[in-house]
Design a protein around this nucleic acid. Structure first.
Length: 600
RNA sequence: GGGGGCGUAGCUCAAUUGGUUAGAGCACCGGACUGUCGAUCCGGAGGUUGCGGGUUCGAUCCCCGUCGCCCUCGCCA
């Protein structure tokens, strides 16, 4: 076999007259009867090969080449010259100034006609691309994502190594804990009827590692959550997970910022500034979200006091019921048609809104929509909103403040995208801090932890833990922090509880009695009793980091072998039935069969 | 579990109100061509309209069911 001397993207004018050997896939072929051109591709790029009839054996063989044949060739690098001796460069190719005048060709493997070609011209349905993932991955953009992902992981590992972290592997076969997301379960053969769970995150193990004195732990690790996927969510995903001892909130955040700064600098050449911080309450108040997108304005402004002065029952009724009225100003939003605003009103209903009152600003006053109901507050409203002619005001109204925030929070993001208010290349970073430790779950009539039950409350709030007073408990803040980029949550973490008596109080508040706590987390409680250092950490979605760096909104793009919305791998056809012998070994019996008959 | 969108040649799409032989471009096969580069020109082959049922003289089109894919709500401590 001819052994390559270069890759397909690296030959330049400097190499002219050198004999070289290349290996790769036939990207395209152009047969002119006499001279034959072959574009050969590897992960590095594309180089044009020329076969002249004078080298009959190679030329005849080149005639038979088709898309995606695997070849090795040897020849001499020439400048591309036209028929009259003029340069015939191809500016679209990095190697476009040269070509290889080939005299040797080996067909290393033939290929069936591929269902689609790895060139980027025609679009191809995702279903097909997932089935033939190996062909899609040949595309330069996909290989570039794979390379970027590799580099990101490498930069992070180098960074954490330099900071004194140890990478430690934690188990995949874990104890199931019913809190949080649904577990993927793995039946135990040796202990019939018992199950492992795949980790939703290595949370408890990394805390144990701190008790063990590892001091600084990091792991790039797969996590599993058996919940329905979304465009940016996959049941199986990768976290950059870390934990540090003898630290406070600022130490973790500073460390992480250093990592982010290095990744963005090395991958994109972008300088990340000192990342601003915003309390959770402020984020909800101003942006209606715990992960606000700061690339555009349209802040939520409370107009409840003005709304109360109107005779508009939608407003006054909500306020009387303990709710509120907030508004966002959509610059230039009056260009939206009635049809479009009606569609928005329909759209917001999924977030619990009854509708979406709007009004356009014309001639310095509220004009359309609910304008006639609120004419009396027109001037005050316009002043408070800073509105101008051509703007659109959208009102969030509900007796539940949370619904107002959700509706307007989602709406401002949608409008920013629909009205193309986001300039490309913007990076708006934010730490959201001062999260409430717990929130009241009205449906279940109990307290739920907002982050997780191991998150440390703020020191000054510790006394409130056993106050028994609903309001005081609701006001407890925690040492938790989320890193937000352009409206998406990249990671979150907290300082953990390291004193067993505090942990017991939090469990009690969450309705986890001592016996339940022992059954679920006994090993952690034991560990805390044996000299646990103060510690805290954070976990990042590596997939999401790479999505941002590669400018895609689809998590499947950054995973080599992703799954569909029903958790299927279209290439391997997982999940699939297993035979009865396997089930019997695991003491399992299947009650119902899949709708699609995959039985063997 | 709910809402929305999609499924026609290998691929991307078209097909009038339900109408007689389901088309085009690319890919593929054969031929021509010595400087192209998403080559060009000539010719050819290629269809279970996702699957099953129904309505109809007649269904790619309408109805019911089902399978698959995408977006989304719930869910994701």
């Amino acid at each position: 076999m001819l052994k390559r001397t270069h890759h397909c993207g690296e030959l330049r004018k400097d190499h002219i007259d050198q004999r070289v050997t290349l290996s790769g896939w036939v990207n395209n072929y152009r047969d002119h009867g006499g001279v034959v051109f072959i574009d050969v591709r590897d992960r590095n790029g594309i180089t044009q090969l020329v076969f002249h009839p004078e080298n009959k054996a190679a030329h005849d063989l080149a005639d038979t080449l088709r898309h995606e044949f695997v070849i090795a060739v040897s020849g001499v690098v020439r400048e591309r010259i036209g028929p009259k001796g003029e340069p015939a460069h191809n500016p679209k190719l990095a190697t476009g100034e040269i070509e290889i005048d080939c005299d040797q060709l080996e067909v290393l493997n033939r290929a069936q006609t591929p269902p689609f070609t790895p060139d980027e011209f025609g679009k191809v349905g995702e279903e097909l691309r997932l089935k033939y993932r190996y062909i899609e991955l040949r595309r330069p953009t996909m290989l570039n994502i794979i390379r970027t992902r590799h580099r990101v992981a490498k930069i992070m590992r180098d960074y954490f190594d330099a900071e004194g972290f140890y990478e430690v592997e934690t188990p995949f076969l874990c104890k199931s804990t019913p809190e949080g997301a649904r577990d993927f379960l793995v039946p135990s053969r040796l202990q019939p009827g018992e199950f492992y769970a795949l980790p939703q995150s290595p949370q408890l193990f990394k805390q144990i590692l701190m008790v063990a004195g590892v001091d600084k732990y990091v792991q790039i690790v797969r996590c599993f959550r058996d919940e329905d996927p979304r465009a940016d969510r996959q049941a199986e995903f990768t976290q950059v997970d870390l934990e540090m001892s003898f630290v406070e909130q600022d130490d973790v955040m500073t460390c992480v910022e250093g990592m982010i700064r290095k990744v963005w600098k090395d991958i994109l050449g972008v300088e990340v500034p000192v990342i601003q911080r915003m309390p959770y309450a402020e984020a909800m108040d101003r942006y209606g979200s715990d992960r606000p997108d700061l690339r555009f304005d349209m802040e939520l402004i409370d107009v409840s006091d003005l709304a109360a002065k109107t005779d508009f029952k939608v407003f006054t009724g909500a306020i009387a019921a303990g709710g509120l009225v907030k508004a966002i100003r959509v610059p230039g939003g009056s260009k939206l048609t009635r049809k479009q605003t009606d569609a928005l009103a329909e759209w917001v209903k999924q977030f619990g809104a009854g509708g979406l009152p709007i009004t356009k600003i014309e001639n310095g006053a509220v004009a359309t929509g609910v304008g006639k109901f609120i004419a009396g507050i027109s001037a005050d409203l316009i002043a408070r909103m800073g509105a101008e002619d051509g703007d659109l005001l959208c009102f969030g109204v509900s007796e539940k403040p949370a619904v107002v925030h959700r509706v307007l929070g989602e709406l401002r993001v949608k409008l920013a995208h629909d009205l193309e208010m986001i300039k490309p290349g913007q990076w708006e970073w934010l730490w959201v801090v001062d999260f409430p430790a717990i929130e009241w779950n009205e449906d279940q009539k109990r307290w739920d932890s907002l982050h997780h039950p191991f998150t440390a409350p703020n020191d000054e709030d510790l006394a409130k833990l056993d106050s028994g007073d609903h309001k005081q408990i609701a006001s407890i803040k925690s040492k938790a922090y989320d890193l937000v980029l352009n409206g998406s949550e990249l990671g979150g973490g907290s300082i953990r509880i390291h004193r067993p008596e505090v942990q017991s109080k939090v469990f009690a508040l969450l309705g986890i009695d001592e016996e339940a706590a022992r059954t679920k987390f006994g090993f952690l409680l034991d560990a805390l009793n044996f000299g646990a250092p103060p510690h805290g950490g954070i976990a990042f979605g590596l997939d999401r980091v790479v999505m941002h760096l590669c400018n895609t909104t689809n998590i499947r793009d950054v995973i080599a072998f992703p799954k569909t919305q029903t958790g299927a791998d279209l290439m391997t056809d997982a999940p699939s039935h297993v035979d009865d012998v396997q089930l019997a070994e695991l003491s399992l019996r299947v009650q119902t069969h899949n709708k699609k008959d995959k039985s063997v």
